[in-house]
Each structure stands twice: as C-alpha cells, then as structure tokens.
C-alpha cells in the first residue's frame, strides 16, 4: 500500500528541514526558581483546584424532585384498584346492612317475639352503625345471598300474627317467612283481566252449576 504521507514528507523535505533547524526557544534562567517559589508559597493563581463548597440547594434538588414527582403521581393519577376497592367497600357496606337487617328481622321473629319491633328509621340507623362497626362479624354470621333490606321487606309470620307494625306496606314489598332463605324470583308485570273473558268464565261456571243442580234434582226424583 502506498504511503502518501511518506511521499508528502519528501515533497516538503526542504521546509521540514528548515522547521527542524529553527532556533530552540528556552525558558528564562529564573524559570525554575520562580516555579518552585510559587509552589512553596502556594501561589497557584488560576491553577488552584477549587474545592466545591457544599451547596444545600444542589444537595436537596434531586431528592426534592423525586418527592414532588411521587406526590403528583398520587394526586393526579387515579388508581383503578383504589376506586374498585372503594366501590367494593361501598357495596359490601350496603349488602352487610341489608344482611344485618334481614338477620335481625329473621332472628327477631324467633328470639324476640314478645318485644315490640323498633321503628324502621331508628332500626336502620342503629343497624348501619352497628354493621359498620362490626362488618366482619356480620359477614361471618349472615348468609350474604339474601338480596333485600329490612325497609322493603315484610315478615309474613309477623304479618299473620299481627305483630308487624310497618306502616309502609306496599304492594311491591318483599315477603319473607320463617328462617328460610328467599330466592329472588324476578319482577312480575301486573295485567288487568279481560272483562269478556271474565263473563265467559262466569257463564261457564254458572252453566256447570246449573247442570249439576239439574243432575241432583233428577237423582232425587228417581229415588
């Protein structure tokens, strides 16, 4: 491989020779003395290495940035898990309330038959606070499958015996009886009967009754 730089050395040989022969410049005689004096006196001028002073701002800035970032993350980024938990807590609370209500209602039938029932509002408030205080107990003791609350339910046993004092009895209230669990059967539509159909049914029943009366009278005659 051709070395172009070697060739260039030859091309500039005269000039390179002159450059090499330029007079050598030497330091002044007192150079070393001055240098050692400066070193002994520690007169380093600009060459002195400056120890960086401890700066609180520089020291705290990175940690402050990290802390701020974490705080902002907590504030501005909504946590799905957190909201889910909140909702689940809310749901649990409602379910537990209704369960507790139902349990009290059911157990009240058996244990506290003689006692007058507590009014709806007071009872529900008391039960809400009770259930929120003892959520775990209510969850353990009560079957969570019962889907209705005290305020919307009527104990059939109480109703029959006359000890039910609920004043908000409505057609849509859920009826509960005894200790058995009541499965939820769904919703039913109320249909008005057709008057023509009723007339036909009545006529048919009347004709059957008439036929039966005639048959009885014929039997009596034969006897």
């Amino acid at each position: 491989m051709k070395n172009i730089y070697k060739e260039d050395d030859g091309k500039y040989a005269g000039m390179i020779e002159d450059l090499k022969n330029l007079p050598k410049v030497e330091t002044p005689e007192n150079f070393e003395y001055n240098l050692m004096t400066r070193i002994q006196n520690k007169n380093f001028g600009d060459s002195k290495i400056k120890d960086p002073a401890f700066n609180w701002i520089k020291f705290l800035t990175p940690s402050a940035v990290v802390v701020t970032a974490v705080i902002l993350l907590f504030i501005f980024i909504p946590s799905n898990q957190q909201t889910d938990n909140q909702f689940s807590k809310f749901d649990n609370k409602i379910v537990n309330n209704s369960i507790a209500d139902n349990k009290n209602d059911a157990s009240g039938d058996i244990i506290n038959q003689g006692k007058p029932p507590i009014s709806n509002g007071a009872k529900s408030l008391a039960e809400t606070s009770k259930s929120s205080a003892n959520t775990d107990n209510s969850v353990k003791n009560v079957n969570p499958r019962i889907p209705f609350g005290y305020s919307r339910s009527v104990s059939l046993d109480d109703y029959i015996t006359g000890s039910n004092h609920q004043n908000n009895l409505q057609r849509g209230n859920v009826v509960n009886s005894g200790n058995s669990e009541t499965p939820f059967d769904g919703f039913f539509l109320v249909e008005k009967p057709d008057p023509n159909l009723l007339m036909k049914e009545r006529a048919r029943i009347d004709s059957v009754k008439n036929a039966k009366a005639k048959a009885d009278s014929l039997k009596k005659v034969q006897k």
């Binding site: 330029l22 050598k24 410049v25 030497e26 330091t27 002044p28 150079f31 001055n34 240098l35 400066r38 070193i39 380093f44 001028g45 600009d46 060459s47």
Partner: peptide, 26 residues
Amino acid sequence: DPLMNFVYRFVGDRDACTDIVQETMI
C-alpha cells in the same frame, strides 16, 4: 525547554509562553 519551544511556536509570544509553561508545571 521542549514545552517552551512548542508553546512559543504555537502562540508566538515569549512572555505569554513563559506563563503558559509555568501554568503547565503548576
């Protein structure tokens, strides 16, 4: 001396050159 020669050819000022070599040694 080699540094003095180098710096002098580069900067072209003897006084400045002496200072630079002193700084180099410091």
